[in-house]
Design a protein around this nucleic acid. Structure first.
Lengths: 71, 71
DNA sequence: GTGTGACTTCTAGTCCGTT
DNA sequence: CAACGGACTAGAAGTCACA
């Protein structure tokens, strides 16, 4: 489970999260997802669903598109 | 399971599919997914994962972003 | 050609902890 | 604070028969 698109998404999340000075824990709280799950997404270990992509994007105050830009 | 973003995605798939004169059957073949599954996505009955979004986008010769444009 | 319900298998996603 | 592990539950993936 390390498909390029998942890596792209995970890296975008990590980059934006750090740029906003948030910990995985804080982001997981804002997104209503579990702490460990955010880590798995950033490491491209899980094939995320559309609704959770949206939750994370919202928590980061960006559109989903921002998280897939480079791809 | 009828969240707006899923509806947006499903409608975009249906619109693009029809614009290219494809049946659900033909698209499912190109995307390597089951016929009925494509229908469920178009009807927003499934919370699709990122990898399957990519498969469908590829089969339609567009980027994933095109399928989330309006959103 | 498409929609629907029912179904099984597999993985997304949670929760506990330890490094 | 983040990575990683095992065990678990919810829900997506994937298929089918029939309308």
């Amino acid at each position: 489970m390390k498909q390029p698109i998942l890596i792209q998404f995970g890296e975008a999340v990590r980059t934006l999260r750090k740029a906003q000075g948030l910990s995985q824990e804080q982001l997981s709280f804002k997104a209503n997802l579990h702490r460990t799950y955010i880590g798995m997404i950033e490491r491209a270990e899980k094939n995320i669903t559309l609704i959770n992509m949206e939750k994370i994007a919202n928590a980061l105050n960006v559109g989903i598109i921002e998280l897939l830009k480079k791809y």
